[in-house]
């Protein structure tokens, strides 16, 4: 991930040694966590990815078998397609909505706290059983959405959750609907933009749109970047919503079989933790590539003050 080398950009020579010492002092808790808690299990999973590991008995080394098997597994390919679709459609939709609402809520209007809370509510409940139930009920064949459509004289609306061609769409919608988390992060970022910039621009008669383009977006770009990177990483690992809406099956007909859900089934339902580990590392490679591209491209649009 050479793109991250960009972090070291603009280095200065002064106080190099002092920064070294201070750097590691500030990093001490993180380093301890890395060594004691994080690295061991990560390396263990890397090792297990080269083994046959049925969980209830020890692992046996099988070399590249798991990795070769992945290329001949049509369900794995399908789960990749499902996951890519989710990432490519869901992430931009959610982020644009989150940014739009955050900017709207940042105008110092009346009832701000109320709206902010209301828009955040879905994120509070997003992973609960209750929401999965409601979702299934709303988008069921005889659910609320179809009742509404039928009253608008739509004949034979599809069973949104039951139809493999629309089931993924309902989960993407659920994802977009829980836009509260990136919205809050955007809001926090907007709070950091000094108001004097806007005041000055207003005096000069800049329109709201111009202000947004020339002040808000550039100054918010580190936060936009953060949300983009993290939402992509998160979306590639999407699990909970698919798990609860499909009852853990990834159905109908594997149409909501996300990569991580398939991985989980391999590991815990089929007791093939070696294969699941190999899948996990394939996912790391894929996410890693996306993240590296993100960092590389960020040079052209993310503005830091350092």
């Amino acid at each position: 991930m050479s793109a991250i080398g960009e972090l070291a950009h603009g280095e200065r020579q002064k106080d190099e040694s002092r920064d070294n010492k201070a750097g590691y002092i500030f990093l001490t808790p993180w380093l301890i966590g890395l060594v004691v808690i994080t690295i061991g299990p990560m390396l263990a999973s890397l090792y297990l990815s080269f083994t046959s590991y049925p969980l209830l008995a020890g692992p046996t080394w099988t070399g590249l078998t798991n990795y070769i098997r992945m290329f001949n597994d049509p369900r794995l390919l399908n789960s990749l397609v499902v996951t890519f679709t989710y990432v490519v459609v869901g992430v931009p939709l959610q982020l644009i909505l989150a940014l739009a609402i955050a900017v709207l809520l940042n105008t110092g209007m009346k009832g701000l706290a109320f709206y902010r809370s209301v828009f955040y509510l879905p994120s509070l409940m997003g992973s609960s059983v209750a929401i999965a139930l409601l979702w299934r009920q709303m988008f069921g064949t005889t659910g609320l959405v179809n009742q509404l459509l039928q009253s608008l004289v739509v004949e034979n609306p599809p069973g949104w959750i039951a139809d493999p061609s629309t089931a993924l769409g309902t989960i993407i919608l659920l994802h977009v609907w829980t836009f509260g988390s990136p919205m809050i992060i955007f809001l926090a970022g907007l709070r950091q933009i000094p108001t004097m910039y806007y005041e000055a621009a207003s005096v000069d008669g800049a329109s709201k749109w111009t202000q947004f383009r020339t002040i808000t977006l550039p100054l918010l770009s580190p936060i936009v970047f953060f949300n983009l990177v993290l939402q992509i990483i998160g979306a590639f690992q999407a699990f909970t919503q698919a798990f609860i809406v499909s009852g853990g099956t990834g159905g109908p007909a594997d149409s909501t079989m996300f990569f991580t859900l398939y991985l989980y089934q391999q590991g815990f339902t089929n007791f093939q933790m070696g294969y699941a580990s190999a899948m996990a590392w394939l996912l790391v490679i894929i996410i890693g590539i996306f993240t590296a591209i993100n960092f590389a491209v960020s040079k052209y649009w993310v503005f830091y003050d350092d």
Binding site: T141, V245, S246, G247, T249
Partner: peptide, 16 residues
């Protein structure tokens, strides 16, 4: 039941 209804039934807790 129709295909769509039967498919939905699969993921429901039994008491629903």
């Amino acid at each position: 039941p129709s295909a769509s209804v039967a498919s939905e039934e699969l993921t429901k807790p039994v008491d629903q």
